[in-house]
Amino acid sequence: MEAGQRRFAMVAGETSGDLLAGLLLKSMRQRWPDLVAGGIGGPRMVEQGFDAWWPSDQLAVRGYLEVLPKLLGILRIRKRLRERLLAQQPALFIGVDAPDFNFGLEADLKAAGVRTVHFVCPSFWAWRPEKIEKVRRGADHVLCIFPFEPALLAEHGIASTYVGHPIAHMIPMVPDRAAARRQLGLHDEDCVVAILPGSRASEVQYLAERFFAAAVAMLKARPGLRFVVPVVPALRERIAHLAAASGLGDALVLVDGQSHAVLAACDVTLIASGTATLEAALFKRPMVIAYNMNRLSWHIMRRKQLQPWVGLPNILCGEFVVPELLQDAATPEALARATLDWLDAPDKVTALQARFAELHQTLHRDTAQLATDAIEKVLQS
């Protein structure tokens, strides 16, 4: 491979995409030490020598109406990025998730002769089935993190490779709860509820206050509970304000990042729907999944939904193994009751942990290595 062929471009749109892309970049750099990569990324990517022309958090929005205040800025970034990449003609473009941003960009680059890989198959099998045509137009190859996806893509003539889920490779099969509790300053005898209201400002806006209200109800029903909230730095001030207003006092602790330590340490988690629910499943923790968003965005999303489940653990298990309380159902009282129910059902928790262990085995692969192998084949094609 010529040195010029090692110039890659990448776009990762939020925290989870930055994590995936950072792992992939580390593996690619081991394969091609003189790799040069730039585009849109976050701190994990920058740690691997990535040249972030724009930070990934500028693309971190979810919903329909919620995106409107940022839409012009996002479109401006995509236009400038497209122009730059068409002029540079990198050997490969890798779009990491962020489908609404990446698909159109990938299609334009592919039409101009740039090879394109999309990392993380969009969940067209769960909602928005029209995405599959965008995948076909934009991606030369798709890296799939769930085992059933390659067969579905093949039905549409799209080449793909199952690479496993990198989080399953990072999380130990048997988490060390005692070590995590020591790291967080918790005691072995504490009954710990992890509260994860999301990593986006829009999620915190709609979920954090009701999650803290649920915690107040739980503490009233069961004095002595400890609540731990991992927060991303950009949202710490907002979450700290809501936490202080909740009146939970010393029963609630905010920690910077460390979401994996929090999940390893907890007995149960109240958690926003998203990638974090899969992480909780891989830590073998019982959970209550919740979501709330702008009402119009909710109605639009529901019309596009193809499956009865929203949470990844339920989707992957094919049934409601954990409760989902969404939109109007996500009242503080209902959230508190569903979370406390897990603490009173040890046999149910044991059965759930066995189910999650099976899921962990299915998803556990050397994702970065398999993805790099697939990318090399694309470059050689």
Rank of each mutant, 00 (worst) to 15 (best):
Q5V: 01
F8K: 08
A12M: 13
T15G: 07
A21S: 14
L25F: 09
L25I: 06
W32Q: 03
D34V: 09
G41D: 09
V46G: 00
E47I: 00
G49F: 08
F50P: 04
W53E: 13
D57A: 10
D57V: 08
D57K: 05
A60E: 12
V61D: 00
L71G: 02
I77P: 02
I77N: 00
Q88I: 01
P90K: 06
D97G: 10
A98F: 14
F103P: 01
G104N: 12
E106G: 12
G113P: 03
V114A: 06
V114D: 04
H118I: 11
V120G: 02
V120E: 06
C121K: 05
P122V: 05
S123V: 04
S123K: 14
F124H: 08
R128Q: 13
L143H: 06
E149V: 04
E149I: 07
P150A: 05
A154C: 01
G157T: 07
Y162R: 03
V163L: 05
H165P: 01
P166H: 08
I167A: 13
I171G: 02
P172G: 05
V174G: 00
R177V: 07
R177L: 01
A178C: 01
A179Y: 02
R181C: 05
R182G: 13
L184Q: 07
G185E: 04
E189Q: 15
S199C: 07
S202Q: 15
F212T: 02
A213C: 05
A214Y: 06
V216G: 08
A217Y: 02
M218K: 07
K220Q: 15
A221L: 05
G224M: 12
F227E: 07
A234I: 12
I239N: 03
L242R: 15
A244Y: 01
A245S: 14
G249K: 12
A251M: 09
V253R: 15
L254H: 08
V262M: 11
A264T: 13
L270I: 10
L270G: 12
S273F: 10
G274C: 09
T277L: 01
V288I: 13
N294V: 10
S297C: 11
W298I: 00
I300P: 12
M301V: 14
Q305D: 00
Q305P: 01
L306C: 03
V310A: 13
L312P: 03
L312A: 08
P313M: 12
L316S: 03
C317S: 15
V322Q: 04
P323D: 13
E324W: 10
E324G: 07
Q327F: 10
A329I: 00
R337V: 11
A345S: 14
A351K: 13
E358Y: 01
E358F: 00
H360Y: 03
H360R: 11
H364V: 05
A374V: 07
I375D: 09
I375T: 05
I375R: 10
E376D: 15
K377H: 14
